[in-house]
Each structure stands twice: as C-alpha cells, then as structure tokens.
Simulated assay, not measured.
Amino acid sequence: MDFDQADALNQAIRLLSLRHRARAAALLDPLGLHPGQEALLLALARTGPRTQTQLSEALGCEPPSITVMTRKLEAAGHIRREPAPADKRASIVELTDSGKALADQVKRLWCALAEETVTGLPAETVAELPGILRTLTGNVDTRRPRNPHGAGPES
C-alpha cells in the first residue's frame, strides 16, 4: 500500500472514530451517561451479573476505568456491587431496575445511532460491516502477540 492510500485509510478511520464517539456522547448526555458507561450497561443487560474483572475483559478497558464507571453508575442507582461469594476481594456487578430501564433506552439510542451511521449504504454492505470492523480491530489489537516483523499476528 502506498502512503497516499494508507493516509486516506488511516484518516478515514480516525475521523469516523472521533465523530462516532462525539455523536454517541451527545446522544448519551440527556440520559446522564458518558461514553463507555453505555457499553457497561449493555454488557450487563446481555450477560447478567459479572465481576468487574470480567467486565474489564469484555469491554477491553483497564480495571481502573471499570472501577470509576461502576462507582458512578452505582451512585446514580443504575447498578449495585456486592462482594463475590468465592472471592471477597472481587465485586459482582448487576443492573438495578433503574439500570435495566436505562439499558433499554440505550438500546433504542444505539439502534438510532447505527442507522444514522450507515445511512446511504447498501444493505449487503451494512451486513458485512461488523465482520470487517472486527477484523480491523483484531489487526490492531495491542493485547495480541505480533510476529517478529510486526506485519500481523503470529501464525
């Protein structure tokens, strides 16, 4: 790939990321949420109670970020944290009734944001996007070992 093509691709990904996050923040603000908190709520809505460590792994966030998010969401009454029965050092996080209602609002907002984001694209392209984006994410995942030449994942 030559520089012009690489630059165009990297700039497009950067701008999409920045604008999508800003748009999400604007939509989440009336709900009293900050970007990232919606992902935590949706993860709990999908899977049920989880430890903070499990949430950290599922969301690709550092544990201190999860701790800050859970404290804020707990203070707002959307989640509750309790010591894990098997390990009193770990906390189990679960949605409250308020959190379940908020997660339902976030789901509707997320659908609207996704539709807004893909407006004008053919249905076939939209259907392929999640797989393409997962591949791109995997290609730049810093948690994954790379081969010695830095050209991609190890075989």
Results as ranks from 00 to 15, higher is better:
Glu124Leu: 06
Leu59Met: 09
Thr70Asp: 10
Leu40Pro: 08
Glu154Gly: 12
Arg108Lys: 13
Ala39Thr: 01
Glu154Arg: 04
Ala84Met: 14
Arg14Ile: 11
Leu40Arg: 01
Ala8Asn: 09
Ala86Gln: 15
Gln52Val: 02
Leu113Tyr: 11
Leu40Val: 09
Val118Ile: 10
Asp104Val: 05
Asp104Leu: 04
Thr67Gly: 09
Arg81Asn: 12
Ala12Arg: 06
Arg21Asn: 06
Ala45Tyr: 03
Pro148Asn: 11
Ala123Gly: 04
Arg144Trp: 14
Glu62Gly: 01
Arg21Glu: 08
Pro145Phe: 11
Gln11Cys: 07
Leu42Arg: 02
Ala103Ile: 00
Asn10Leu: 11
Pro122Gly: 11
Leu42Ala: 08
Ser91Val: 07
Arg50Trp: 03
Ser91Gln: 05
Leu129Arg: 01
Lys100Ser: 08
Ala114Leu: 04
Ile13Phe: 12
Arg14Val: 05
Asp2Leu: 09
Val140Leu: 11
Ile66Val: 11
Val126His: 00
Asp2Glu: 14
Thr51Asn: 09
Asp2Thr: 09
Ile132Pro: 08
Val106Gln: 01
Thr53Cys: 09
Ala22His: 06
Leu129Ser: 00
Arg23Ile: 03
Gly150Thr: 02
Pro85His: 11
Ala86Lys: 04
Glu128Gly: 11
Arg80His: 14
Asp4Val: 01
Glu124Trp: 07
Gln37Ile: 02
Thr96Ser: 07
Asp141Met: 13
Pro145Lys: 04
Gln11Trp: 02
Leu33Ala: 00
Arg71Trp: 03
Val68Trp: 15
Arg80Thr: 14
Arg81Lys: 09
Arg21Tyr: 11
Ser17Trp: 10
Leu113Ser: 15
Glu154Met: 04
Gly48Phe: 00
Thr142Asn: 07
Leu15Ala: 02
Asp29Pro: 15
Thr51Phe: 00
Pro85Asp: 13
His149Trp: 03
Leu129Phe: 12
Ile66Glu: 03
Leu28Tyr: 00
Pro83Asp: 15
Thr135Tyr: 08
Ala127Phe: 02
Ala25Pro: 04
Leu109Ile: 15
Asp4Trp: 02
Leu27Trp: 15
Ala22Val: 10
Thr51Leu: 05
Ala112Cys: 08
Cys111Glu: 13
Asp104Trp: 01
Arg108His: 12
Ala101Ser: 12
Lys107Met: 09
Arg14Thr: 15
Arg19Cys: 14
Arg108Phe: 08
Leu16Met: 08
Ala151His: 12
Ala76Ile: 01
Ile13Thr: 02
Leu42Glu: 00
Val126Ser: 02
Ser155Val: 05
Asn10Arg: 12
Pro49Asn: 06
Cys61Ser: 09
Leu40Gly: 04
Ala101Arg: 12
Gly77Val: 15
Glu57Gln: 03
Arg144His: 09
Ala26Lys: 13
Ser155Pro: 14
